[in-house]
């Protein structure tokens, strides 16, 4: 399975049948309240039953993901950050070592090739560097086996996504 997760609507060409496109701006997703219910009460399930509970199983099952997000202070802006925080039911509370560092054990999360596109106006090289560092950190917690980061102005997003989607078809 493959997933395109975006914080904005995108006019996409025909996608392969195993690719799901999710536009977060059209969904109702509350922020994680840090209750740890998904680890200690109903393991693997978030206690907040909104649209996020349809998305994190898709993230877990996908071997290729493309995340598209506006950049804010070198990180993801609200819609994407909200979804990524709500995705912690895919992990266990328990901790193991990954590259000598402590991280959570994953549940049934397929290792992924990830492409992360961050966009915005006037992204300085310092801000871009922080965003790249963030994705490298995410890779350890989100089971990315490989990842690529692209930073671009907003006007370039649609073309970049179309190009990537076409590459997935090939």
């Amino acid at each position: 399975m493959r997933l395109i997760l975006s914080d904005r609507p995108l006019p996409l060409p025909e996608l392969s049948s195993d690719t799901t496109f999710v536009d977060l701006s059209g969904l109702k997703i509350a922020n994680c309240v840090g209750c740890f219910g998904c680890w200690t009460k109903t393991p693997g399930r978030c206690v907040i039953r909104d649209d996020a509970v349809k998305i994190y199983p898709l993230i877990a099952a996908s071997d290729r993901v493309l995340y598209v997000s506006r950049i804010r202070y070198g990180g993801y802006d609200e819609p994407m950050k909200t979804m990524l925080e709500r995705a912690i039911p895919v992990q266990q509370a328990f901790i193991r070592l990954v590259n000598g560092e402590t991280h959570h054990l994953q549940r049934r999360v397929v290792p992924k090739q990830a492409v992360v596109m961050g966009y915005g106006e006037e992204i300085s090289s310092a801000e871009e560097a922080v965003f790249r560092r963030l994705v490298a950190r995410n890779a350890l917690n989100m089971n990315f086996s490989e990842f690529r980061v692209e930073v671009m102005p907003e006007a370039a997003v649609e073309d970049a996504v179309r190009r990537e989607a076409a590459a997935w078809l090939g």
Binding site: K81, E85, L134
Partner: peptide, 15 residues
């Protein structure tokens, strides 16, 4: 620290 970044509660306020 939330998902290697700023928790959304704080991010919204900072904006």
């Amino acid at each position: 620290l939330y998902a290697d970044g700023i928790p959304v509660t704080l991010l919204r306020f900072l904006k």
